[in-house]
Amino acid sequence: MGSSIRKAVELILSADPELLNILSTTARVCLSSSILALIIGVPLGILFGAERFPGRRVLLVLNRTLIGMPPVVCGLLFYMLFSGVGPFRHLHLLFTVKLMIIAQVVLITPIIIGVMETFVADTAPALRETARGLGFGRMKEYRLLINECLYSIFSSYLLSFARAIAEVGAVAMVGGAIAWKTNVMTTAIMMYTNRGSFTLGIALGLILLSLSLLVNIILSVMQGRLSR
């Protein structure tokens, strides 16, 4: 373990080009997918929580099912859609970072929708009654509702980022873990472990954990300020 930590520090300090490439690919995939999922998931979560419309319950059940979808199933689905025999083969997205991001968006958006829907469904009725009682219009009502949601938005983002950075099944299948192209931290750990380079694998694992810890500390501080 001690040698692994030393190796991890050495890798970082030496600015190892392959490690830097893996780190930048990981950052690209995780940040892009989590931000895109946030952009899609927050409005949908608020809509599902605040409004009552035909088909809402069905959509919620579907969303809860998607929350529990195994990443490898998601990866398999995208592999089939974009592989040489799939309907989207002409887009040539298989084994690209773009498709890795899309697959992760599909995996983590339901988490954001779920977190937001639960919070909004609990908050919206009381807020709406008060806002309507004061004679506020729909726009102002929604502005106030979004203001109430800021803490939940951060919580859902934390969850989605954590899932994105730890995810391996989908990105391995659609990305192919190609060195210098689609290799991210998790797929690299798998690759090094398969090769028998446990030290390198553990070193990468420690870097991954440290990165996750750092991002979570930053977001938690921001979340704490919002809750005041």
């Binding site: 009381a126 807020l127 009654e129 008060t130 806002a131 309507r132 009682g133 004061l134 004679g135 106030l144 203001n147 109430e148």
Partner: peptide, 10 residues
């Protein structure tokens, strides 16, 4: 104007 029994603090 209506003040509900449990008014919501924004």
């Amino acid at each position: 104007g209506y003040l509900p029994q449990k008014s919501f603090p924004f």
